[in-house]
Design a protein around this nucleic acid. Sequence first.
RNA 1: CGGGGUGUAGCGUAGUCCGGUCAUCGCGCCUGGUUUGGGACCAGGAGGUCGCAAGUUCGAAUCUUGCCACCCCGACCA
Length: 514
Amino acid sequence: MVIKRISYICYRLRFLNLQYSFQNMAKGLTSREEDYSTWYNELVTKADLAEHSAVRGCMVIKPYGYSIWEKMQQVLDGMFKETGHSNAYFPLFIPKSFFSKEAAHVEGFATECAVVTHYRLKNNGKGELIVDPDAKLEEELIVRPTSETIIWNTYKGWIQSYRDLPILVNQWANVVRWEMRTRLFLRTAEFLWQEGHTAHATAQEAIAETEQMLGVYADFAENWMAMPVVKGKKSANERFAGALETYCIEAMMQDGKALQAGTSHFLGQNFAKAFDVKFTSKEGKLDYVWATSWGVSTRLMGALVMAHSDDDGLVLPPKLAPIQVVIVPIYKSDEELESISAVAKSISADLKKKGISVKFDNRDTQRPGFKFAEWELKGVPVRIAIGPRDIENGTVEVARRDTKEKTVLQLVGIDEKIENLLNQIQDNIYQKAKSFQENNITPVNSYEEFKEVLDNKAGFVSAHWDGTPETEQKIKEETKATIRCIPLNNALEDGVCVFSGKPSVQRVLFARAY
RNA sequence: CGGGGUGUAGCGUAGUCCGGUCAUCGCGCCUGGUUUGGGACCAGGAGGUCGCAAGUUCGAAUCUUGCCACCCCGACCA
């Protein structure tokens, strides 16, 4: 079975020269997890810096992959602006002393920081470049793992009065976290993200902002990525370093594992106190500012891949696909190509008028079957094939990526039919993911059942928990499952903790996670 | 950073136990021809310091020692 599977994947990939490292797969392909890494190759690849261990875990985002990220950025950015936010940019380097100002924050990030200690190289006389020992920085600089500290250091100078609030700022940036173990897309040493950092006069307003942005993320995940998510709060163990409350959206991948897809933090007055950011209120009283921060990263692309892909490659939701429709001509002679091209161009023009992105794949270096497979691997939602038969009949063959169905359609009104089809596909892949999610959230009432479901069914387990970090920690040690979230709008229900037997007022979601 | 595993052409591999026609095969790549409605076929061709460095030997991909890199699991985490 394993061998068959590997040879199948090799067979598919040889055509695109996308072969990945299969050496581990030979040892046992137990989940679909490994398959995904092969598709990542379409979008992203590990940086080819094998001889430089210092940069292991960095990624190269290929043009096709980056175009998906650009589309995500564009949509999210629009949503942030609609909710009153503006973009800004803060430095990549953060003085070490900034970090030590917020105790929980420094503890959370201290073990994964890249540190700049010198500012110059020199020739050592043997023709080798070395770090100039005379060029040591007086204070080391941290390459930002997140920007709370440098931003709050800046906000101090921006805020004096309640009239200066709120500050609603977002930044698109790269950050670096020196993780012990990296995982392509899901946990790379360097990643791209956006981080929103807001400052407010009251706790209520900051909490409302935190919840609003969680809503924006959920909206984006469900309506653009076609990926259902559970909105909730993190338990104390999983909370962001320095936050009073961490809200998150949790998505379920096709193997049943959970992926944290976005977070929104209520930071209270922690950073204001650490950086001494006070304002004078309407009543003339001096108080610390209330803060939030929220972010999503290139991990969303990993989520997109793992939520929808099938054995033939990526399945992109039409709303985020860089190419929504591809047209493949089938021809023998130049004359045939000419008449097909005329039809293809007219269809393209009509679709483009409707804002649909179209690619006419008229490469003469590949055969049609190859192109079909290649565009499927890349997840293009709709393919139109046009051959001599279609020219004769005034038809085209339309294939949809999500179900692989092919239909022959009349040319008249094709633009509207395609537009409808794209909407249908968007809806269908969401519904498919939604029913998968619903079928894999399992309520359990005993610890035996809890373990049994985790091992045999996977997915999320909905269980009573006594609310203590100790219980959560023990469950994690024994089962590798963590509390993904305490769902918002959770129904209150009296019960007993599956682990400790102590009373509990609500169920929380446990799962094994990426 | 702990445990396990693996390094042979762009990718995937055979060969390693037992040293000597041993550098194998498939894909990809290049050239020519025939093809083109689901990943074409035929013929020819290019491409390798067998991870690196020492050592043993008449002789090392193969044995010894050291080093390096990568992968998986764990701890950590968006």
